[in-house]
């Protein structure tokens, strides 16, 4: 596939509270080093804690690279009505294209009541939601699936293969989530076992699996190989995973 059609479906933009953050220029350089031209970017958790300014940074990045970046709004469900207002500002004023939720960094349970008002906005506006998935107690596979069942009209993308575990303990739950929730898709970044990725393609279709690097947390030059070098996937399947799926689901 051409570089122009490939999309990294999850990267972070902006200064990070945890260090290692990148601005839009650096972000573009990193994804292009992996041969990828476009990306879906979400705000990193900023040193100042407040997500509003981080959404402003994302909007500026999208304006600077309109052909290469689509940015999502990040809000903290713990903020209640203020979170809803910030999401609406990000969508209406900043022109961001979706919602990103990080239950581990903002500390909330993804299938709990705090999230529902935001998901209602996503449903009403017809926007997709990316959920940082696999985090203990807040965004485990079954919890994200529970959210997906509450909002079956909303496309929800699970990061990290729907799991963060190097014993494979989260794999079956991630598979059950995909099997039972047609509005769920899954990203490849950092996923334990390439045969898990291939298994998801075999069981659920290549349309349900999206390439992502989670740059700068992970390294695009390595992460893209999980798809490009998969020995048992067809070129057509890789094309879907490397860009067509993100174009269809996330590029707004």
């Amino acid at each position: 596939m051409s570089a122009g059609s490939s999309i990294d479906s999850h990267v972070y933009v902006g200064e990070s509270l945890y260090g290692g953050g990148v601005d839009a220029d650096e972000l573009i350089a990193r994804i292009e080093a992996a041969g990828v031209h476009r990306a879906i970017a979400v705000p990193a958790r900023p040193p100042g804690y407040h997500l509003g300014p981080a959404n402003d940074v994302a909007a500026a990045a999208q304006c600077a690279y309109p052909d290469q970046l689509r940015c999502f709004a990040r809000v903290d469900p713990n903020q209640g009505d203020a979170a809803v207002a910030e999401l609406e500002r990000a969508l209406d004023t900043l022109g961001l294209g979706g919602l990103f939720l990080h239950p581990n960094e903002e500390l909330f349970r993804i299938n709990g009541p705090l999230v529902r008002p935001l998901m209602a906005v996503a449903r009403e506006r017809g926007i997709p939601v990316i959920v940082a998935t696999g985090w203990l107690a807040v965004s485990e596979g079954p919890q994200v699936a529970d959210l997906a069942r509450q909002f079956p009209e909303v496309p929800i993308v699970m990061t990290n293969g729907g799991q963060i575990n190097l014993s494979g303990l989260g794999q079956v739950d991630a598979e059950i989530a995909l099997d039972t929730c047609p509005n769920l898709t899954v990203q490849t970044a950092g996923t334990y076992r390439e045969d898990f990725i291939e298994g998801c393609v075999r069981r659920f279709g290549a349309e349900r699996v999206l390439y992502a690097s989670s740059c700068p947390v992970m390294e695009p030059r390595l992460e893209v190989k999980r798809v490009q070098w998969a020995p048992n996937l067809s070129d057509a399947e890789k094309q879907l995973m490397l860009g067509a799926n993100a174009e269809r689901i996330l590029w707004r």
């Binding site: 076992r193 390439e194 045969d195 030059r221 390595l222 190989k225 999980r226 998969a230």
Partner: peptide, 17 residues
Amino acid sequence: SDGPGCSPKIDLEKIRV
């Protein structure tokens, strides 16, 4: 690599990267 489920080729690339 923790292969063969994990790809030795990709984990070796990790060292190179």
